[in-house]
């Protein structure tokens, strides 16, 4: 399962969307990820916003918070995968219980990262996600 994307300047480029109700977290993820091939197309603060943004920008990679107002992350993951089965979703959540993780994975997430996280943990999780 490889990501498909059009090559840009001879290099593959993937569109990234960040979903988190916290501004700090959104900026933190954007700033900390070190993948040149990831190009941020937008950030969203809740599930509904994310869905709308997704329809407009068609991202390849998504980081997803779970506890958010107006449609939580779990439901949002399901909707995104319906829209684009090949999308790669990394759940970034403070919820550390296993049932939540399984639920997210079952809905179509591809990775799981617990908050708080270090830059290294984030990059490892993204690398794993795009493998």
């Amino acid at each position: 399962m490889k990501l498909n994307a059009a090559p840009v300047n001879g290099k593959r480029s993937y569109k990234l969307m960040i979903v988190d109700d916290s501004n700090i977290m959104r900026r933190r993820i954007e700033r900390s990820q070190q993948f040149e091939e990831l190009e941020l197309v937008g950030t969203a603060g809740n599930g509904e916003e994310a869905l709308d943004l997704f329809r407009r920008t068609d991202p390849d990679v998504v980081t997803m918070d779970l506890t958010m107002p107006r449609m939580d992350g779990i439901e949002c993951i399901g909707r995104l995968v319906e829209l684009k089965p090949a999308v790669r979703i990394l759940v970034i959540s403070a919820l550390a219980d296993k049932a939540t993780a399984v639920e997210a994975m079952e809905k179509g997430a591809n990775g799981f990262l617990n908050k708080p996280f270090t830059d290294r943990q984030l990059n490892e999780a993204i690398a794993e996600l795009m493998r």
């Binding site: 700090i24 977290m25 506890t67 959540s93 403070a94 919820l95 550390a96 908050k115 708080p116």
Partner: peptide
């Protein structure tokens, strides 16, 4: 976010 982390833990 801090409260979120406490809650997750």
């Amino acid at each position: 976010e801090v409260a979120n982390t406490i809650s997750g833990n």
